[in-house]
Write a protein that binds this DNA or RNA. Sequence first.
DNA 1: GACATTAGATATAACGTTATACCATGCTAT
DNA 2: ATAGCATGGTATAACGTTATATCTAATGTC
Lengths: 341, 341
Amino acid sequence: MAEKPTLETVAKRAGVSIPTVSQVMRGTGRISEKTRKKVLQAVRELHYVPDARASSMRSGQNREIGFVINRISNPFNAEVISGVSDLLELEGYLVSVLDTSDDAERQERHLEAFIANGRGGLLWVPAIETPQAALDILTTHAIPTVTFLRRPEGSPFDHVGIRNADATAVGVKYLAELGHRNIAYLGGTGMSDVRRKRIEGYKRILTELRLGEPVIWDCHDTKLAGLNAMLALRQAYPETTAVICNGDMVALGACLGVIGSGLKPGREVSVIGFDDVEDAAVSTPALTTMAVSPYHLGRRLALMLLNRMRERDMPVTVSDVSAELTIRETTGPLVPPQGRV
Amino acid sequence: MAEKPTLETVAKRAGVSIPTVSQVMRGTGRISEKTRKKVLQAVRELHYVPDARASSMRSGQNREIGFVINRISNPFNAEVISGVSDLLELEGYLVSVLDTSDDAERQERHLEAFIANGRGGLLWVPAIETPQAALDILTTHAIPTVTFLRRPEGSPFDHVGIRNADATAVGVKYLAELGHRNIAYLGGTGMSDVRRKRIEGYKRILTELRLGEPVIWDCHDTKLAGLNAMLALRQAYPETTAVICNGDMVALGACLGVIGSGLKPGREVSVIGFDDVEDAAVSTPALTTMAVSPYHLGRRLALMLLNRMRERDMPVTVSDVSAELTIRETTGPLVPPQGRV
DNA sequence: GACATTAGATATAACGTTATACCATGCTAT
DNA sequence: ATAGCATGGTATAACGTTATATCTAATGTC
């Protein structure tokens, strides 16, 4: 039932002034060992916790960092969050995560709330249909921001991403070397920056290697959607013998679809994923995928934000890391439809 | 480069006083349509966003709610977060998520930060080794709190959980009816409230049905851990023909382990999971599991917090929902080890 | 012994809001 | 004409901190 303790309460109990308590809490100023002890004692007794709002308002500093992300539940994102948190917490920051579900309106609410709370910095995976206004509001409020994965048109922010076009090309090329000629791109909806780049790489290598016409099949980024999409795709384009997917979840679903058709991934149909989530190595058959280490990507992301926060007028940095072709069991040489060659 | 806009800036530009702007923003007080228009115009021009810290400090209200959770990346938790967010955002609240990784020290930092920011309410999955002190600090600061899944000893908070003991007993009983006599409990580490309850139910039904001695096998709550644990378990107790698992991830891993031994889940070894995550229905073979709807659980959780926030001195409520046996393909009648009966 | 220096503390104002109380008007009723 | 009352707005203080300036002893210097 006790009143919420404040600096004043503590000061009274310790028999000192308010600024003294404040200085003890922060370890600044000149304080004798004797009064320090007295104050800390009072703090303990009252369970005093400084009010971060008042503090950050007055000092203009906030050790809380926001991570506005498109889907918390995506395992890839979840691992990124781990990497980010581990590094930032070591530096004394706190990371709180806001999920937009890729909904631009929800995202706008979150960004506003973020600004309203005067947070120290922002990590941001922009929602797919992010309007220019969202960028503007962040710049006018001078929020240190680093975007992740998706980089909106004309963004003035630092960025950590993936070499999507190159990675996809590498994957398709590998499939071509295995003898596949009808290679589809499976997964994703709408035209996010990421997907556009990947499809760009896909088309580029297709024409470069003089393979067939591009086949692009939309679906959401879940296993179930991948499963259904794979079935539908094989119905529409039965000549397809290999797919490269927009993400591991889709790829894992696609494998289930292949199995469901009585075939075997890596035999009749080859499947390549993207991300290398934990499950990829563990599922059966183990998924061939374009691997990036989400945990380390998270650390890099956090690091870049720290730099930006320390040096507000650094030139804008864009850091794209490459993905590595990780060959497992869902890819294999082309086998002719029936009988032997 | 413009200064950060405040009520003062807006007031000056609109040619009115500070309180007037404040009232327009909140839609309170008596304001003529004419000045309202003027003020809103100025707000738009300056991209003014109210400072939530100042506001919540003065008014004692905070529309931000924290969800301190043990593992964001757990798919079950991720779906709960969706349910929570959807409901609370509809009510005008903002949900920010903090991940403890089941680490008591990290959890303490998060709870302190939570209090420091004077958030409106707390949803909390306590870390496994949560000390009494963590409960104390929340009560002394009078934070409206609802715990989820795990209920610490002597907790004074509202709670939403699962009828763990009963659910586990139902699952084991079903396995027994299929003819299984050697049924192991697989998964979990340490003795969280949840696991204790489930094991309690497991042992109770075992003695009630006069089945064999309990076999309890620890492992972390991931697919990979489940896989390895299953292999080890079969090594140590080859007579085991059925397992009930601490969670779907473990169960899915266990199935992989069974497959890896050249056997088939639902045939030689039956597996039951817990939670019914999205993957459970989609994996092959589809997982039999004790289903609770995480999304709806999340909504219920959110609702309970809202009640508590509105009515601070309501009696403490504990709401345990029951899980439903959802039979799919990983359970089947006992088949004798070799040859026919 | 006068003066500067330092250690150890404090008084005061400010951060951007909102709650409360108050003050002008103009209008109605008598 | 004047009390009474809405209507539309403002002055002021307070929320809990921290930055800045200031103050008092005690110590050191010559």
